[in-house]
Design a protein around this nucleic acid. Structure first.
Lengths: 237, 237
DNA sequence: CGATAGCTTGAGTCTTATCAACGTATGTGG
DNA sequence: CCACATACGTTGATAAGACTCAAGCTATCG
């Protein structure tokens, strides 16, 4: 079920997505290959570990998490994906999805068939370069996360996580000091490699020290400087 | 100083590198843009954090490490690079190298000027696709490392590290059970997010339990199955 | 041969995980 | 609409794994 009114040309987040470096005519071409389907309900799955790779996906609205599942059954969350972000890139090499992507809330997705995208890339230097930049960025983000997990204490990790979310919301024109955690605390714990109990205690401590307030899942950052400092200033996660 | 006798066409590791999907004539074109300079001595630096991005690099022989440096000065090793691997991909987005690459032993490097590569990619679908696969693979590798650091104990991490090295040597036609650690133990510790002392103790334990022997930097894996099991079988690091 | 960097081993400590119990949402069926 | 079931989150007590500090040992290289 296509939704004709939405096009890359008038999409609010096209400057975070693939069209960044493209001329109007080029965006038109890109738009031509995009498949838009009805929104994904909370909890439903975009692709699963082992699925054949056909396309990469752009998040248009909502939020997804992606995670792998180890042989002993426990899951490792790899990332949370906000509007404008491209997912499925880790499947290009093996042509099979190595991770599962699940909607954390109702989300709309643009499907970009990979073969079509590759053909377009041949003739559109801007698209080719933006693709490369997005992949490069993802490599860098993963490496920064690596650093976070390897070298930072539990407090610092959580602070960095919140600062990172804050920055990403800001980039999307939303408040940077006041947002809703769409993921469960247990997801945060999993992502940051900690026990749920530890996350719970750390949130309590952040509240106690007046860095943030938290009501249900609504987070307010009161002391952005303090929190950034705790996170390690230059850590963009 | 160009070394004329080495060409992509006759390079022993071209099937691990960029030429994988290319026809002979295409490899010729690729070879045309490659810059080969004299070997990098042990300890010398290929690029530094902050350097302007001009090219990506293929390791032809030797071994390099790449690492970032945090504001408080401590370094975080991101990876060790063996022949056939492409490095510098994390700089494409920002056009500045976010990490430093240093030779751990005498190493030869092929420089691939990025603009030239991009132009070639326009006309060579195979090259374009191989580039994407290599980046995709790197994303995946980083994510697997993430999992390792987040969910595995110290023993498991070290075992996984050794199994990973072993597999990579095997892929290059070298023995998978008998190799020299080119990096210092402190580098391994840094990479895996542990203290040097811990790494030292873990090596002792692996030897004691007859998984490996180690003489200077020469490692022999005696019980590959046992070590793999300890590492978590399906963990390719 | 001596200086230095790298590595090993031991003792004590700290951070974070685990276990357990309890509190708080959320949602379903009567 | 309430009561219950279930999932999610909090808090406390205890334990384990890995870090730090300290001392000594072993390569390596000029």
């Amino acid at each position: 079920m296509a939704i004709p009114s939405i096009k890359c040309q008038n999409c609010g987040i096209n400057q975070l997505c693939l069209p960044v470096m493209l001329a109007d005519a080029e965006v038109e071409h890109l738009d031509g290959i995009v498949q838009r389907t009805k929104p994904l309900d909370k909890g439903s799955i975009l692709y699963r570990v082992g699925d054949t790779f056909n396309a990469i996906y752009a998040v248009r609205s909502g939020c997804l998490k992606s995670y792998t599942i180890s042989e002993n059954g426990d899951e490792q969350i790899i990332g949370f994906h906000l509007p404008g972000e491209i997912i499925g890139l880790n499947a290009i090499d093996s042509q099979q999805h190595p991770s599962t992507a699940k909607a954390l809330e109702t989300s709309t997705i643009c499907t970009l068939p990979y073969e079509d995208l590759d053909s377009l890339a041949a003739d559109m230097p801007g698209l080719r370069q933006q693709l490369m930049r997005i992949m490069s960025r993802e490599i860098l983000d993963d490496q920064e996360l690596l650093f976070l997990l390897n070298k930072k204490s539990a407090d610092e990790r959580l602070a960095a996580f919140l600062i990172n979310l804050s920055a990403r919301y800001a980039k999307r024109g939303l408040a940077n000091d006041c947002f809703k955690l769409v993921m469960k605390k247990s997801d945060i714990a999993n992502y940051l490699g900690m026990a749920i109990e530890t996350i719970s205690r750390l949130f309590s401590r952040l509240v106690e020290k007046d860095y943030i307030t938290i009501e249900r899942k609504q987070v307010n950052i009161i002391d952005m400087n303090g929190l950034s400092q705790l996170a390690g200033v230059s850590c963009h996660l």
